[in-house]
Each structure stands twice: as structure tokens, then as C-alpha cells.
């Protein structure tokens, strides 16, 4: 499986960051979409969709963990990577406990992100539908 098959869903209220990440992934030939809030993501991407969600922790209304809960509730199968600009020990733990695939603190390199995404793909090659 090549990177070009991966679909990445970015959920971050920081527009500048979301836009830059999408741009970077697109430059690498990866399909990526950016959503400014948990709500708009849930509205636009159905649960059965494949790919990987990159979710920021700090968001107004429904934050990263809230979205993680909701996705489990709504039976989203795609893996979720939690990212944060405010690295705290407990955030990583909580992310893992809530079933996130991984945890990255901003700023992160594209390589570290793709490494995580690739493990997701090897582990969960077939989305549950």
C-alpha cells in the first residue's frame, strides 16, 4: 500500500495549522481534508469511511477526546491520531486509553506523522463496516 492510498481527515480549530498540514500532505500526494470543528467532521465524513483522523485536543465546544468518544459511539472504524500544541503527560495516556492510535505534539515532522499513519494501515488494513 502506497501513501497515495491513504486518506487523512484533519480536525483542528486552528485554521492556519489545518491548512498547512493539508497542504503538506497534498504535496506528498496524500488525499487530505481539513475540518475546523468536530461537528463539521462528523457531518461530512460518514462512519464507514476509511482513512485516518488527525484530531487536535484543544478545540472549543467538542474537543479531541470528545470527538474520540463520539466516533466510538457512532462506530467509526478509522484510526485516530491525537495531536496537541500543549504537551502534557496525561494527554498521551488519555489518548491511548481512549483508543487513539497515536499521539503527536506540535510541531511534528511529516515523517513522524506518516510513520504512525502507516502502522495504522498495517494494523487495520480493512475498515470495519
Amino acid at each position: 500500500m502506497s501513501d497515495s492510498d491513504i486518506r487523512i481527515w484533519i480536525v483542528d480549530d486552528d485554521l492556519s495549522f489545518g491548512k498547512s498540514l493539508k497542504r503538506m500532505l497534498n504535496a506528498m500526494g496524500i488525499v487530505a481534508e481539513h475540518f475546523g470543528s468536530a461537528r463539521s467532521f462528523l457531518d461530512s465524513v460518514p462512519a464507514g469511511e476509511s482513512g485516518c483522523a488527525i484530531v487536535d485536543v484543544h478545540m472549543p465546544a467538542c474537543d479531541g477526546f470528545c470527538l474520540l468518544d463520539k466516533m466510538r459511539e457512532l462506530r467509526y472504524a478509522m484510526p485516530v491520531i491525537i495531536v496537541t500544541g500543549q504537551p502534557e503527560g496525561h494527554t498521551a495516556d488519555q489518548a491511548r486509553q481512549q483508543g487513539a492510535l497515536g499521539y503527536l505534539s506540535k510541531p511534528f515532522t511529516v515523517e513522524s506523522l506518516l510513520e504512525l499513519v502507516r502502522t495504522a494501515d498495517t494494523k487495520k488494513a480493512v475498515p470495519q463496516t
Binding site: 498540514l21 504535496a27 484543544h58 500544541g85 506540535k106
Partner: peptide, 28 residues
């Protein structure tokens, strides 16, 4: 320091992303 980190890491992250995107595009 933690609030400082959050506020700064956002733009830093974006800068890094953009710089990497630019780097990739420059080889295309």
C-alpha cells in the same frame, strides 16, 4: 510555560508543515 507552549506550538507546527510542503513542491 504550558499556555505559552500551546500558543507557540500552533504557529510553529504550521510553519513546519508549510516549510515541508514547500520543500516537497520544490522537487516537483
Amino acid at each position: 510555560s504550558s499556555s505559552l507552549a500551546h500558543e507557540i506550538n500552533q504557529p510553529l507546527g504550521a510553519i513546519l508543515n508549510n516549510a515541508e510542503a514547500a520543500q516537497i513542491l520544490l522537487s516537483q
